[in-house]
Structure formats: structure tokens, C-alpha cells
Amino acid sequence: MKRILLACFIALGFSTQAQIQTPAASAHASLEQTVGLTTVKVDYSRPNMRGREIFGSMIPYGSIWRTGANATTKFMIDKPVMISGKELKPGTYSLYTVPGEDMWEVVFYTDDSNPLINTFEDDKVALRTMVEPMEMPMNMETFTIVIDDVMADSAVLSLLWANTVVPIKFNVMTDAEVMKNIDRALAGPSAGDYYNAAVYYLNSGKDIEKAKTWMNKAMDMTEKPGFWQYRQQSLILAKAGDKKAAIEAAKKSLEGAKTAGNADYIKMNTDSLKEWGAM
């Protein structure tokens, strides 16, 4: 019995100890920066020098480094960016580096599951480039990643540790995106804009004549309207007092719903056609 009680006290002691939180040896950090119209995020851990010689010693030249500690550094973009004239598509990447005395290789890797690797698999390399490191006049004790030199169409992702900084310049597609937005805005409302406005007016009990005009424009601008669009058009036309056109639209909606096998729209259109004296 005494042995059992002793075992219980020991287990309880370990359980209590396991609840004590302690700081990680390498602190976690994240940063987010808008560059032009592109959101860039970095998630990484920050090891310290602790009196050690870093590059060429603790991290040997020519070896693959996960660019941080604990896990691979994550680089996330919501729009494509250009690095050294190459396009990196939107997504989440592991950021690997291969430090060298004169040049660093920087690799954006599609496998972001924290793999520790000795060689790169070519099909997982989204982009690779060579960057010349720069010497700093002082030591950076804690590994740091910053996004600086932020312009409307570019920025620099800088890796700083010990007396070394590795600047990785990237460009964003701000001008092309803005020009596309300008062209879209100056071209006037889209079919979707007219459709959404018309349905809102219908459901909100607003000016039904405006809703009718907007819906007709939306349908004229749509190459192949869906049965759900014809359904909304029929309701607007009926409410506007144009029963003949409403019946025509409802029949198109019914036909499309039958083809799609949508029982709800078949019933709704059938009920409306009966109500309007068309069946």
C-alpha cells in the first residue's frame, strides 16, 4: 500500500510539473506588411547568438538552413510577387537558405510541413535565387526578419543575424492591378452589379421599376443566365405588373431547373406559373 501511495505522489508531482510553462529557447515571431496591394506575412522563430560563431561555424557554409529555429520559416503572400525576375505565386512557402561566404541561395519551397531536409526536391522548389550578403558594423544578437524599403511596387525582405544581413528584394504587381481596377470601374457596373442591385430592391420593397430596369440590363449582359436568375427576373416582372414577361421568364427558369434537377426551383416556378394563370 505504501508503495502504491508513493507511486501516486510521484505521478502527481510530475503532473504538476508538466503544467509549468517556460519560455522557448528561440522566441516565436510573426510579421505582416502590406506592400502596394499585396499582403506579405512571415512566421518564424528567433534563435540567439549566445556567444557562438554563427555562419561558417554553427551553420556551416553550403548547408541547408531552415532560416530560423524550431520549424521552417513560413513566407505567405496573397498575390503573386516577382523575385529576381521570376514569379512566385500566391501561397505559403517554407523559406530555406544556403549560406555562403560570398553568396546565399534563397529557396521558396512548396512543402510547408516543417521538413528538415538535406537536399531540395526539384518539384517542390517554387523559386530559387542567389543573394549577396552584406556585413553589418555590429552584431544582431537575435535572428531577425524585417520587411523594409517598402514602396508602392516593391520591398526588401531582410534576414539579419550576427554581423550579416541578407536583403531579398521583391516586386509586387501594383500597377497592373490598379490599372485593371480603373478599367473595370470606368467600364461601368457589371452584370453582377445590376443583378445584385435589382434583387436587393425587390427584397427590400424599393422602387420596382428601377429593379426591373437593372435586372433587364443584367440579363442582357449575361451570355447564359442561370435558372435562378430567370427566377428573380420573373418575380420582379410580376411585381412590376408585367405578367406576360414574368411568365416567359418563369418558364425559362422552370426549364433550366428541370435540366439541373433542382426540385426547389421546379416547385417555385410551377407554383408561380399556376398563380399567374399560365398552367
Results as ranks from 00 to 15, higher is better:
residue 216 N to D: 15
residue 149 D to R: 08
residue 104 W to M: 07
residue 170 F to V: 05
residue 265 Y to G: 00
residue 264 D to H: 11
residue 268 M to E: 14
residue 150 V to N: 03
residue 201 Y to M: 15
residue 194 Y to P: 00
residue 238 A to T: 08
residue 96 Y to E: 10
residue 32 E to M: 08
residue 11 A to Y: 00
residue 153 D to H: 03
residue 21 Q to W: 06
residue 236 I to M: 06
residue 8 C to V: 13
residue 214 W to L: 15
residue 97 T to M: 05
residue 131 V to R: 01
residue 265 Y to I: 04
residue 56 G to L: 12
residue 216 N to Q: 14
residue 95 L to E: 03
residue 128 R to D: 13
residue 124 K to I: 02
residue 154 S to I: 03
residue 104 W to E: 07
residue 259 T to M: 07
residue 261 G to F: 02
residue 126 A to R: 09
residue 105 E to V: 10
residue 199 V to Y: 04
residue 254 L to S: 15
residue 143 F to E: 06
residue 221 M to R: 11
residue 151 M to C: 00
residue 52 R to N: 09
residue 190 S to D: 05
residue 244 K to M: 11
residue 5 L to Y: 14
residue 267 K to A: 12
residue 50 R to S: 10
residue 244 K to L: 10
residue 83 I to N: 07
residue 114 N to R: 06
residue 10 I to E: 03
residue 271 D to K: 09
residue 49 M to A: 13
residue 220 D to P: 01
residue 269 N to E: 10
residue 222 T to Q: 04
residue 235 L to M: 14
residue 106 V to P: 13
residue 132 E to C: 01
residue 44 Y to N: 00
residue 118 N to G: 14
residue 45 S to K: 13
residue 252 K to Y: 13
residue 76 M to L: 14
residue 152 A to N: 11
residue 194 Y to F: 15
residue 190 S to Q: 05
residue 37 L to S: 09
residue 58 M to I: 09
residue 273 L to T: 06
residue 195 Y to Q: 08
residue 266 I to W: 03
residue 179 M to H: 09
residue 146 V to H: 04
residue 119 T to S: 12
residue 193 D to L: 01
residue 245 A to F: 07
residue 208 I to K: 08
residue 120 F to T: 15
residue 84 S to E: 15
residue 239 K to P: 03
residue 69 A to Y: 05
residue 69 A to K: 07
residue 82 M to Q: 15
residue 19 Q to V: 04
residue 241 G to F: 04
residue 169 K to Y: 10
residue 160 L to T: 00
